[in-house]
Amino acid sequence: MPIEFRTASTFSDAAGLIAGDRTARLLSGGTLIMRDINEGRLTDGLILRLVDPAYRQINLSGRVELGAGVTMAAILKRRELAYLHAPAQAIGGPAVRNMASIGGNLFAESPYGDFTVALLALDAQVMVMQGFGAPRAVPLEEFLAGRARGGQGLVTAVQFAPPQNAADFRFRKVSRVRPKGLAVLSVAAHLPMSGGRVSGARVAFGAMAPVPMRAKAVERVLEGKALDAAAITAARAAAAEGIRPVTDAIASEWYRREVLPVHLARLLSGQD
C-alpha cells in the first residue's frame, strides 16, 4: 500500500484515525518522517497532518503547557521560556528549528532528542489522547519507556511546572560539530535549592541509553547537599550507574562513558 496523506482538523479526528490504523503517523514538523520517506525507510501507511490551532499553542498560566506542534523557533521567541532556549537552540540549524516540533522530538532516536532530555529534567508530563476520549497525562519517563511498543495514541501537548528560579535549571549538549552537530551526549538538571541545599533534584542524560534517561544515582547523591566540590565529586562517581550508551558514527560507547562525568561536573559547577 502506498503512503496516504490525510488532514485532520481537530484532535478528536486525528486521535480517531490513529486509533483505527496502527500504521498512522502524525506529520508535525516533518524533520523525522520526511527524512524516512526520502531515504526509503518509510514506504507505506497513513501520514496525518493536524491543523487544530491548539496543537501549536503555548500556555504559560500556572503550569506551562506546550502544544506538541510548537516549534523550537517558537520557544526561542518567548522570553518567559528563556530557561529552555539552550535545549531549543541545540536542535539543528535555523531551518530545522523552524520546523522541528516538541512532539516530534519525543520520538527522536538517540543521539537525537536533546529537547526531550530537558523536559525529562523538568518532570514533564505528556498529554496523550486515545480514540475519542479526553487527553490523559502520562509521566514523560513512562511515555519514553513505552515508546517502542507504539499504540500510545495522539500526543497533544507536554506540561510541566516552570522552575521557580531559572538558574536552577541547566542544560549542556556536547557535539563534535557546533552549533548543530549530533550529540555525543546531553545533560539537563533541575536543582531547586532550599536553605542552600538541593531539594528535589532531577537530572537527565541523552545518548546514554536508547531513549533519554533519568540519572537517578546522581539525583540521590545531590539531594539534600550543598552544591559544592564534594557533592560534584560524588555526582561524577555516580554518573555511570544505569547508563547504556550507544556506539554510532558520532562516538563510541567507551568514549561516551569516559566524558560523561567530566561534562556533568562542568554543568553542575556552572562552567561553560
Rank of each mutant, 00 (worst) to 15 (best):
V218Y: 13
V174L: 13
G224Q: 03
A251Q: 08
G29E: 06
R149G: 12
A189F: 03
A88W: 11
F107Q: 12
H85R: 10
P53R: 01
M34Y: 09
H263T: 00
L144R: 06
K216P: 06
R79Q: 15
Y55T: 00
S61Q: 15
D228A: 07
L66F: 04
V51P: 00
R176V: 08
G133A: 14
Q159V: 11
V128I: 14
A134L: 11
L144M: 07
N98Y: 06
L144N: 07
A189H: 04
G103T: 01
G242M: 12
A73E: 14
A209I: 12
E109L: 14
R220L: 13
W254F: 13
L267Q: 08
P163K: 02
F160C: 14
A226C: 00
V138N: 08
G133R: 05
K173P: 05
A183K: 11
A189K: 04
P210F: 13
V174P: 02
I18H: 13
I37L: 15
V158S: 13
N105M: 02
T7H: 05
A167V: 03
K173V: 06
V177T: 02
R49P: 11
E241N: 09
K173D: 09
P94S: 02
D272C: 01
R49H: 12
P94N: 07
G131W: 01
T31E: 14
A157R: 12
G224M: 03
P2G: 02
R136S: 09
L144Y: 07
K77G: 13
R178Y: 08
D114M: 03
S28Q: 05
V259M: 02
V211Q: 11
R236I: 00
G153E: 07
S9W: 05
A234P: 12
G69S: 00
T71K: 02
E39R: 15
A183S: 15
Q125M: 14
L140A: 07
E142F: 05
I47C: 01
A88E: 05
V259Y: 05
R49N: 11
Q164V: 09
L50G: 01
L27M: 08
A188C: 05
V262M: 08
L119W: 12
A215L: 10
E80P: 01
P53A: 06
E65Q: 15
R41F: 15
R257N: 10
P135T: 05
I75F: 12
S186H: 05
M208W: 05
A209M: 14
A19T: 00
L26P: 11
F169R: 06
N98F: 03
I102Q: 01
S101R: 01
S101K: 04
V70P: 02
